[in-house]
């Protein structure tokens, strides 16, 4: 089809890798943002001014890095499966 030929966008491995890679960046940022927000909320609630924000910011940064690590692992695993499948002849999907 037109799009298939022009962009290879319906090629499953390309689409898969693109969507996985495209989701990595914001996962890290949102982890840090949620950690900082939770810490700020706890500070407002319990009146422990600098501690909640600092501790939960560190938790958020760790969570963000953990998200990126897991996403990268999933990306590598899916690419390895694609490479393994690429050796066998596959039917043309039309």
């Amino acid at each position: 089809m037109f799009f298939q030929r022009l962009f290879g966008i319906t090629d499953k491995s390309y689409l898969n890798a693109l969507s996985r890679a495209g989701s990595i960046g914001l996962h890290m940022v949102s982890g840090i943002a949620v950690g900082a927000l939770m810490g700020y909320g706890i500070d407002q609630w319990l009146d422990t001014k600098p501690w909640g924000t600092g501790i939960f910011l560190i938790f958020g940064i760790i969570a963000g890095f953990k998200n990126v690590y897991l996403d990268t692992k999933r990306l590598v695993i899916s690419q390895e499966e694609e490479d393994k499948n690429a050796g066998t002849p596959q039917k043309k999907n039309k």
């Binding site: 914001l26 949102s30 939960f56 969570a63 953990k66």
Partner: peptide, 18 residues
């Protein structure tokens, strides 16, 4: 536990913002 909690709460935020 808190790290996973933050990581799970970050999921709807990143889905929304993306």
């Amino acid at each position: 536990l808190p790290i996973e909690l933050v990581s799970h709460c970050a999921r709807p935020l990143s889905l929304t913002l993306r």
